[in-house]
Design a protein around this nucleic acid. Structure first.
Lengths: 174, 174
DNA sequence: TCGTTCATGTAAGACGTTACATGATTGT
DNA sequence: ACAATCATGTAACGTCTTACATGAACGA
């Protein structure tokens, strides 16, 4: 259901083709709601079927430009204002933490170090992405900037936590 | 795939029935890897079929006690030491942030305030859970404590970020 | 002309959610 | 006797991933 609104949201900023949306996604929404090419094209077809978006132009190579309809915009607004987001925390990295006692202590330390390093890299990537983007007047990018800031803080926190965990690993037992 | 290892992980700490695991889950793994009752019983049946766990006792009311097998423990260790966790960030709350420009500014502010409040409540719940748990010698709880600390920090961060975002909302446009 | 990018689509299978269904045992 | 809890299972449906498939247009 969320992908549907992710696409409506992107289209609320202006018309675009599936291919356009695919690229925009990678730079923005993919960080908070991953989706594959396959999924996106399927969903766009469904949205067009429900008349929440419409094909408003056709270009070379079978390119179809979609525009959000009034019904689509209304649906998006309704979703935003009348429903509450589900808070689902699914984190495989954290799941494994519970089971570190099952492997040799050295490997457990390596695991935590890797987490810290990956998080630091991710943090750097986000800050770099931030530099590279034209934070213009468009709503999507202005609000997207807030989301990016969250990502930057969250990755920094994960790295810090992993380093802290290294210092606070349960003492080895006999 | 992760649920499979989540269950193997819990069973590595000692034998338990599906019902036992269900309760343990709620207090621990559910926070990093949610799963439903339905999913768990199905997965346990599959694990037993693959002989990674075995029924070692049967009690009243059809209760089946499962014990991890040597093959199961090996599988768990292999997973922990030879595969890298997928970092997937799927957060509906953040997804909506991108589209706040589509709704009236007052509602956008309410949305951010709600995020802060929910995160603060979640934070309080986790700290309370922390008080309530017997942090004994068992590996699962010792390492689980590290995961809980992450959750506590992450919820605090989310609340802080939401309050910061309220102060840094894009200026209204004409 | 030939590789890259643009551009869209389908199909199979894994995973996750919701709902339904059933019944035994325990404590009051 | 009755409610709550213990205890397990199935079915339908929706979502997500992986892989395959196809071909037009552009630039060197």
């Amino acid at each position: 259901m969320s992908l549907r609104y992710a696409l409506l949201g992107l289209l609320s900023d202006g018309p675009a083709s599936g291919y356009d949306l695919l690229r925009t996604f990678k730079l923005s929404l993919a960080n908070v709601w991953p989706a594959t090419q396959s999924q996106m094209y399927t969903e766009l077809t469904k949205l067009a079927g429900a008349e929440l978006i419409a094909v408003t132009d056709e270009g070379p190579r079978g390119r179809k430009e979609y525009t959000i309809t009034a019904a689509g915009l209304e649906d998006l607004r309704t979703w935003l204002t009348t429903t509450t987001p589900k808070e689902v925390h699914r984190d495989e990295t954290l799941l494994r933490i519970f089971f570190l006692g099952v492997i040799p202590p050295g490997l457990a330390r390596t695991y935590l170090t890797d987490i810290a390093e990956r998080a630091e890299r991710e943090h750097a990537n986000l800050r770099e992405l931030e530099q590279g983007i034209d934070w213009n007047e468009r709503d999507l990018s202005r609000y997207g900037h807030l989301a990016l800031e969250y990502g930057a803080r969250a990755t920094a926190l994960k790295a810090e936590w992993a380093r802290w965990a290294l210092e606070n690993l349960p003492p080895e037992q006999d």
